[in-house]
């Protein structure tokens, strides 16, 4: 672990990840309720963007868990 880095990095990244997963679910719900095709396309595209970020963050948390094993599974 690098010097000067907060010990709770894994924890806060996981928090962000959880918020993002919730946001993705909400966007997907809104998309399924949307009747207007244009708005639905926007919502679907945004859900895709958020999903990409979620994947990247999941990968990152795995790496962080490896670095800070004491926070594993937080």
């Amino acid at each position: 672990m690098r010097k000067g880095m907060p010990v709770t990095v894994a924890g806060s990244v996981k928090q962000t990840l959880a918020s993002l997963k919730g946001a993705r679910a909400t966007v997907e719900t809104l998309a399924s309720l949307e009747n207007d095709a244009g708005s639905r396309a926007v919502l679907d595209r945004s859900a895709g963007l958020i999903a990409g970020v979620v994947n990247a963050l999941e990968e990152r948390t795995r790496a962080l868990e490896f670095q800070e094993p004491q926070y594993k599974g937080l």
Binding site: M5, V9, S12, T16, G22, A23, T26, I50
Partner: peptide
């Protein structure tokens, strides 16, 4: 729901910028 979603996403985006600054 919608306001909350917007604010959540905004916070996440700010968090990511912070992590980008913090990480070495």
């Amino acid at each position: 729901t919608r306001d909350l979603l917007f604010l959540t996403l905004k916070k996440c985006q700010a968090d990511l910028e912070l992590y980008a600054l913090q990480t070495g």
